[in-house]
Simulated scan of single mutants.
Amino acid sequence: MEVQINDVDLLTITPAVTIDYDAENDWICVTWTGNHSKESALVFTKEIEAALRKENCRKILNINENFYLSWQEAPVWAIKNWFPRLFILGCTSFAWVLSPRFSSGPVFTEVFKTQTPFLQAMVFTDEETASAWLNEN
């Protein structure tokens, strides 16, 4: 079900993930909530890809502030498998806002710094800084 509020189109609304298109900023905003496994994360990455195709934009704001994931290989998987697909769909900038509960923040930061050949990806600790970075890129 798609709903529009102001300049935001809500594309996917579930208790686990909300995906919307922010027309003012021209990006997909993904807000993760709760505990996720590798399997659930993979299901929702397909939803994010569908949103990117539908809206034909170049940027993703990925908010994980209320997110729990025990899948330690997630950053490496994202760079090797998911980011190339996002790039093919036209994504050039990806801002990843880490959960304060996420113990692998330094791992994400280091992996993204050294291994993002397909698109610009940065890790942030707050949504405001991530949004500012996306607006500059």
Rank of each mutant, 00 (worst) to 15 (best):
P84M: 11
K38D: 05
L134S: 06
V17F: 02
P100Y: 10
I5M: 08
T114H: 11
A78L: 11
E39N: 07
K80C: 05
Y21K: 06
P75E: 01
T18K: 03
T129C: 02
A41V: 15
D26M: 06
H36L: 09
A132L: 10
P117M: 14
T109E: 10
N62C: 03
L134E: 04
Q115L: 13
S131P: 03
P15W: 07
M122A: 14
S104A: 09
E55G: 05
A23S: 11
E39W: 03
V8I: 15
T18H: 04
A95W: 05
A95P: 03
E47W: 05
I13A: 12
I28G: 01
G90K: 02
L11A: 00
K38P: 00
A16D: 12
F118K: 09
T18L: 13
P117D: 02
N62P: 04
E39Y: 04
I79S: 12
P106K: 06
S103L: 12
A23L: 14
F44G: 08
E2M: 14
V3R: 14
E110C: 07
G90V: 05
P75D: 02
T109S: 08
N137K: 15
L134Q: 06
A132V: 07
T33L: 08
I28A: 00
S99Q: 05
F87C: 11
K46A: 14
K38Q: 13
Q120N: 11
G34K: 00
N64F: 04
F87S: 11
D20E: 14
